[in-house]
Amino acid sequence: MGLSWWKILAIVLLAFTITAGLLMDVPRLPILNETIRALYFHVTMWFGMILMLVVSVIYSIKYLRTGNLRHDDVAIEFTNAAILFGVLGITTGMLWAKFTWGDYWSGDPKQNASAIGLLMYFAYLILRNSLTDVHQRARIGSVYNIFAFSAFIPLIFVLPRLTDSLHPGNGGNPGFNAYDMDSNLRVVFYPAILGWTLLGAWMSTVRVRLKRAERKMEDKLINQV
C-alpha cells in the first residue's frame, strides 16, 4: 500500500512543528514568556477539532440523504477524533492557564464554552450507544450530530465575544496578531494546524477502515449460517 502523499505531508509537518515549535525564536513578552509556544500545540487542537467536526457534520448530512452506513462510519470516527483533540485542547489550555492566569480553571467564558461543547459530544456518544439497531443508531445519531453542531457554533464563536474574557483575542486582550510583530509565529502556526488536522484525519480513516472491515466480517458470518 505505502503511504499516500498527505500522510507523508502530515509526518513532515508535525516533525517540523515539534522541532521548530520548541526550538525557534519566539517573541519575548511579559507574563507569556515561553508559554507562547502553546500556540502551536493548544490553539491548533481547536482548529483541528472544528475542522473534523465540520467533516463529521457533512457526512451526517450525506448519511441522512442516502441512508448508506458507510457515510455514518466516517461521521462517528471523525467525531471521536475531534473529541480526542478537544480533550487535549482543554488540558493544554488548563496547563497554559495555570502558568499565565494562576489557576487551572478560572471560569473564563472560553473555558466554559469549550467544556460545554465537549459535554455535548459526550452526550452524542452516549445517545449512540443507547440505541441498539444499527440503522436507527446511525439515523438518530446523525440528527443529533447536526442539531448539536448548530448549537455548538453560537456557543464557541458568538457567546465568548459578548462577555469579557481573559483569553488572548478577547475583552481587550491582544490576540495573536498583536504579538506577532515579525511573523515568526505564523511560519510554524499554519503548518501546525494543517499537520495536526491531517494526523486527526489519518487516525479517523484508519478507524473507519477497521469498522468497515468488521462489518464485512460480521455480514459474512451471519450469511453463512
Binding site: I116, L119, F122, I126, F147, A148, A151, P154, L159
Partner: peptide, 12 residues
C-alpha cells in the same frame, strides 16, 4: 438522555 442531550444544547 433527555437531560444530558438537552442541557449542553440549551446553555447558549
Amino acid at each position: 438522555l433527555m437531560a444530558i442531550l438537552s442541557f449542553p444544547v440549551i446553555i447558549p
